[in-house]
Each structure stands twice: as C-alpha cells, then as structure tokens.
Design a protein around this nucleic acid. Structure first.
Lengths: 221, 221
DNA sequence: CGCCGTTGGTGATATTGTCACTGACAGTGG
DNA sequence: CCACTGTCAGTGACAATATCACCAACGGCG
C-alpha cells in the first residue's frame, strides 16, 4: 500500500516545507488503477484532484459518431487538470481518461487542494503550469487536426509511440483513434509506408524499419 | 480615462471585501485597444494578466501554411487565461488575440495576481473557472474540426456571428478563418445555401433569410 | 475614366473520409 | 482436428474537403 514520500516526485510539492508535506501525506489518498481502467469519463467524474505518481494516463475525446481522438497523455509527475478544471467549473465535457499502464496516483480532496493553492506559491505555480501545459497540448492538437497531413501525423505518432524501441503494438484501429481518423485511412497510409520500406506489419503490430526516413516523412511540410 | 469601479463587473472580484477591491483599483492599469489591434501574439507576449471589461477579443491560431482558425472569443467579464498560462509556464504558442471591437481591459501585474490568488478564494475560483472554460472551448474546437461537417459548422457559425440580427459582415475569407478551412470551400457552401434560399449574399456580407432552416442545417448530424 | 487591390466564382485534381464488403487470423469449444 | 466466432486488415467505389490555378466582378482612388 505504501508508496513512500510521493511529495518528492512533484515539482509542485518538492519545495514545500516539511510540515506541509507531512500534512499532505496524511490527508491524501493513494489510488491505483489497472491497465485499461477508466479513470474518468463524462459519466464518472472524480471529485478529487489527481496527481500521477506512476504510469501513463491517456485522455481522449469521443464524438457522437463514435469516432475518437487522443488529446494528450498525462505522465508520472504531472497532474490531470482537465478533471480539476471541470470539477471547479461544474461544466460538462466529453473526454475520458484511460489508464494506459497500471497507475499509481494521489487523490487530493478539493479542500486540501484549495488550501494548498492558497498557502503555497510553489504549489500554485505548479498548478498553473499544469493548466498551461494542457492548453498548449490542445492548441497543438487543433493545429494538427485542422492543418496537418495524415501521413505526416501518422509518422510522427509512430515514432512517439515506439519510444526507443522499433515496435508499436497497436491495431490500425488504435492508430486511427490516436489521430482521430478512420481505420481505412490508417490501413492505406501504413500500406504505403510498407511499400516504401519504412515499416513492416504484422497483426496488431507495426515495426519501424527506418526511424530516420520515417522522421523525414514526419518533418515534411 | 476612468472606467469606474470595474471590480463590480467580474464575478471573481465582485465578492471581495472593500479594502481588497480598493487595493486592486489602485494597482491595476487600464488598457485600451482599438478595433483590430493585436492584443497578444507569439512575438508580443504581455507580461500582465488581462481582464476584459468591455468588448470582444478573438483568439485564433495560424499554421505555418498561413491558414488560420478561430479558437474562441473572450467576452466582457471574462479573463484571457491563455496569455496568463503561457506567462506562468514560459512556453511558446502560436495563438494570437485580436480586438474584434474596441477593448477596455484591466491589466494586473503578475505580483498582484499571485497575491490575489493566494488571499482570495473567490478570485481563485474565478481563475480556475476561466481556465476550465477555455479548456472546454478547445475541446469543442477539436471535436468540430476533427469530426464535424463543414456545412453544419458554417451554418452554426453564421447564426452565432449574426447575433440577433440577420446580417453577417464578413468576407468568405473571414468565414474560412473562423472555421479553419479554405475560402473556396466557404464560397461553395454559401453558394449552396443561397441556392436553397437560406441566405443571400453581397460583397463582404451574408444575409440570413431563414434562421430556422439554417438552424436545421446546423443541427443535422 | 482607367488602374489595381480585394473579393468571389469555378474547374481540375489530390487528399481524406465513408460505406460496403471480403478474407485472414487467433482463440474456443466440440 | 475442425467448425464457429470475433477481431483485424485489405480494397473498391464514392462523397466530402482541400489545393491549385485561374478569371471575373467590384469598389476605391488617382
């Protein structure tokens, strides 16, 4: 159950004086989610503020039509401000958060949050920076979706998803949801990449054959 | 020069005790912008926090290609948090804010802002709500751009831009920038609307002939 | 009046999205 | 081992949107 002193892991809490941190450690609740679990959705809104200690949270949006697009990912050390925001503003949204890996998070009650925001400039700065980060992420998504080419976006995303490996474990449908497009489109572009020797495919997996040339595609205007 | 007690106009300041409001009135600077003026841009980032007292600020994003899309509008009584965010996070962005009408705004120094955020729960709530509002606006933009049909979006936008009148004063190019699409597309869709008797056109102006039927187009899935 | 920048119209073509259908593959239970 | 089933990928036809290359109409202005 214990996860140690998590206040050490957040820029927003690391700088706080010892007594404050102890108070935090006492008041916050540790939450765990299995891989694939829904952390929040339009139906299930949390009434806490989440700080991610371990894992990756994928935030995506679903249209009425059922089509989906990934908005951004929350990594360890970051806060998920979307829920925070909507909790504070009492407004509806149609985004959902899925645990992409097993998650360990710290849930802070609304009161503790407000108190901390009031008393600690460091924490305040952390929160505002987190908001800024998400706003910028969304600006980027808008830019890509509105003006970007699909092949460029797919190449970029493949490189990102592969991390430092050469494998991306995702179905064409998964990739389509990353980009907010249709599966058929991904199939065609991947087929094209394959013909050009950039990737090879097997069921549920894409292997990057040349990161370099793929990066060149990703860079092309 | 005097604009009276502007603290009366913001939900975030209205509830503050008199002494605090007086301090605010003393420390804040009133800024005015002419219609069409650039309030902020990637080049010219303000180092203050803006609260809009009068007018409308249009926030849009420009791609490298030169294409543009309107992200949202800031109305009187609201705060422009995008600049706030990026100021606090020190990150770059490619959005810009244009005064759509003559503006009267209150510029709060970063220090005053932080102090207020620390001391006044009401103000804090106001700020967080403002962030939430923009996040949701952007979610909406993503949804529209990624999944929406152009004719539906144009109909919706025309109705919004017309307000309670039947006239929209905008060139096809202006409208294209509202939606983040190309002028030719707007020309074609408007031509179609005209053929169907929904609007009539003259140079730089669109007249809505039937709000009702236009609304039906806007509603169509 | 004629010049010229802005605005709007249009066809051709490329890209992307939608629809309908097919087959291939992996697991499951007989 | 084989039929059954659900997921995954491939493909052609067509629709919607974007891009490119023009040209025509309009309105200010010298």
């Amino acid at each position: 159950m214990a996860i140690g002193d998590w206040t050490e892991r957040f820029r927003g809490t690391r700088g706080l004086p010892r007594p404050v941190r102890d108070r935090l450690l006492a008041s916050a609740r540790v939450a765990r989610y299995a891989r694939g679990a829904t952390v929040f959705s339009p139906d299930a809104r949390p009434d806490n503020l989440l700080f991610l200690v371990e894992g990756t949270l994928r935030v995506s949006q679903t249209a009425e039509s059922g089509r989906e697009i990934v908005l951004y990912r929350v990594e360890a050390g970051e806060s998920c401000v979307l829920t925070t925001a909507c909790m504070l503003a009492q407004e509806a949204y149609n985004a959902e958060g899925i645990a992409e890996t097993p998650l360990v998070a710290v849930a802070l009650s609304q009161d503790s949050f407000d108190q901390l925001a009031a008393e600690e400039p460091t924490f305040r700065k952390f929160i505002f920076a987190a908001f800024a980060r998400r706003l910028l992420d969304l600006l980027h998504v808008v830019d890509e979706v509105a003006f970007g080419r699909i092949d460029v976006r797919l190449a970029t995303r493949l490189l990102a998803l592969a991390g430092d490996t050469a494998e991306v474990e995702a179905t064409h449908d998964d990739l389509a949801k990353e980009l907010g497009t249709a599966r058929e489109v991904v199939s065609r572009v991947l087929h094209d990449f394959q013909k050009r020797g950039l990737v090879s495919q097997s069921r549920g997996r894409v292997t990057l054959l040349s990161r370099e040339r793929l990066a060149r595609v990703a860079e092309s205007t």
